[in-house]
Design a protein around this nucleic acid. Structure first.
Lengths: 337, 337
DNA sequence: CAGGGAAGTCGAAGCGCTTCGACTATCCGG
DNA sequence: CCGGATAGTCGAAGCGCTTCGACTTCCCTG
């Protein structure tokens, strides 16, 4: 193993000088700096992470806590994890992966053992058992999602209220007067996930503001359940011309069902989806969507965390603004409606 | 922060004794052990990971290198990652997440800096740029998948040859005489992914052994491409009664296409899938499948890695045996065929 | 009953790094 | 031309842990 002492000897300086070249915490003459840097690459030196962590009490590692539950849309989660890793690397940090298998103790353990010096926690529920632990361990943390009581915490999330509003506005602007919302399975509501409620309320308040008639229905993931829900919906509301869907698993079944019923999209009925961009692009017709910006949320979470590590003050709540991605699944409602 | 010295003082022993209680590397009297353990939990002591890594030159962290490419079926990947984390924790190790964004340098960096002491690399291609780096850094490693030259390496994978064979045998046993294989997109073949080739060869050799007529077709992920492929296939081979599919994204479109064409599954045509168990269970009819045991592969990879860390010798190649999960999508072929 | 080994414990030496205080050389203003 | 910053470098202490050798008991065997 190559140590800092080897580099120092090779460059003809003291170990502390090498350390200061690396950290930039004291001024170093240009000559010395370049000599040291040459020695570093000549010897292929990489500082020992453990030694560094011990001496500086910063591990340069952050923990990423992923949800245990798998009823979340997995590709999003993966996109998110990737962007966190990439973001962390840009700040010279690595990412330790924690699942909820170990429960809140996992958080305690990595915090107390100084394995990590900050945490990102995903998929926060209204009443999340990890939140008190986060307060207890006192490590810098960023939550994705909002708990019931976000006091003292830093939270990031997509602006679900605005996203739903954007969908409704889009349909209203096109002239639709009666629309419906197909949401996540009712189980998601039941377990107190904040975003489901926020989406619904964004939908409902915008519908009221724009003076539309509207229906809200949860939507189970299976193909047949979607078919039944949609059929019933269309029977009950013959004047329906627009649909907002917020449920990845139901997108393909929905389109297929409409096709099966002879309803053309967008001529007979418009569909706008809150879903990942790639899903919107894969189906026929390509969906008008308000895509979930997983990558941006991940990046922002990392940036906030790094600011906290630098003892900068950060806003307690960050909402990522939605934007509409035009597709071929929305148009003005049919003339006779 | 609570240190080992605090625990030692609290228990009235020396720090080294506490260390030996923790590691079990020397015998400790029952009395001393229990006193130390009480002190540990009384003080809430967790050893400092950095200090431990420095002193023992083992970090108790393994790296998990996930593929950059996203044309892999993501839920599988997630299942896999989860089982690696769980498995690692059972051996008192944590998992550092590495993506390929950083390229092979990421591996070098974490190895040289002693951040991790072993590596699991996923989604190995026949000619994988990470393989030479793995040889270079000389860290214990387990690869998921087989490179062209696996000499000196430890590889784990599903037995794709046997899995395809199992599918063919199942159809042949039911009496089918003419079948087809719907594989991954041609891009997957093109980039030299070993499993695609192994699946195909397993299919073809079993078909030959059982004396069946058979066709092999790649399959692009989009709905319409699947429809076209399937229509053409059925037109070209009117006697076709059985289908083996190895392409997660194409499963739903395939079933829908068959339904659209009025071909009943399994009365008119049998379908057996190589896909995750949950996907097989979600669709109608529930598929007969040879499920990809992501979780088992992950666990085995971790076990092999831990054995290597303990300097035990391990088999260079581990193939996980497939098993057939009966569903409602296969039956004897129609009588008139 | 002497001698040898096992069981149980301790002290001290580092592991490779950061950081603080101290030191020298250089430069500036008065 | 002198006193005091400032830039640039070094030495040494110490971060919290593991591990090796050494020591003391105690028990067993011949």
């Amino acid at each position: 193993m190559v140590t800092i002492a080897d580099v120092a000897r090779h460059a003809g300086v003291s170990p502390s000088t090498v350390s200061y070249v690396l950290s930039g915490k004291r001024s170093i003459s240009e000559r010395t700096r370049s000599r040291v840097e040459e020695s570093i690459s000549a010897l292929g030196y990489h500082p020992h992470a453990g030694a560094r962590s011990l001496a500086s009490s910063r591990a340069n590692v952050i923990a990423l806590v992923l949800p245990l539950r798998t009823d979340m849309h997995v590709p999003i989660l993966m996109q998110f994890a990737t962007s966190v890793v990439t973001g962390a690397r840009e700040h010279d940090h690595d990412v330790l992966l924690l699942t909820n298998d170990e429960g809140p103790d996992g958080l305690r353990r990595v915090a107390r053992s100084a394995l990590v010096d900050a945490v990102i926690v995903m998929d926060i529920e209204l009443n999340d058992s990890r939140v008190p632990v986060l307060r207890e361990i006192g490590l810098p943390a960023v939550l994705i999602g909002f708990p019931a009581d976000p006091a003292e915490l830093t939270c990031v999330d997509w602006d679900f209220v605005a996203a739903a509003a954007r969908c409704v506005d889009h349909l209203a602007d096109l002239g639709h007067r009666e629309i419906a919302f197909l949401g996540p399975p009712s189980a998601v509501f039941a377990r107190g996930t904040g975003f489901a409620q926020r989406t619904t309320s964004g939908f409902e308040s915008t519908v009221a503001r724009r003076g539309l008639r509207a229906t809200v229905r949860p939507c189970e993931p299976s193909h047949s359940a979607v078919r039944d829900t949609v059929k019933r919906l269309l029977d009950d509301h013959p004047g329906l011309t627009g649909l907002v869907i917020h449920n990845e698993a139901a997108v393909a079944p929905l389109l297929e069902t409409l096709r099966g019923l002879g309803r053309h999209v967008p001529q007979d009925i418009s569909v706008v989806a809150m879903c990942p961009e790639d899903l919107a692009g894969q189906v026929v017709p390509r969906l008008t969507a308000v895509p979930i910006p997983a990558e941006e949320i991940g990046r922002r979470a990392v940036e906030l965390l790094m600011s906290k590590l630098d003892h900068l003050s950060v806003p307690p709540a960050t909402l990522i603004a939605p934007h509409l991605l035009p597709g071929e699944s929305t148009a003005a409602p049919p003339a006779d409606s």
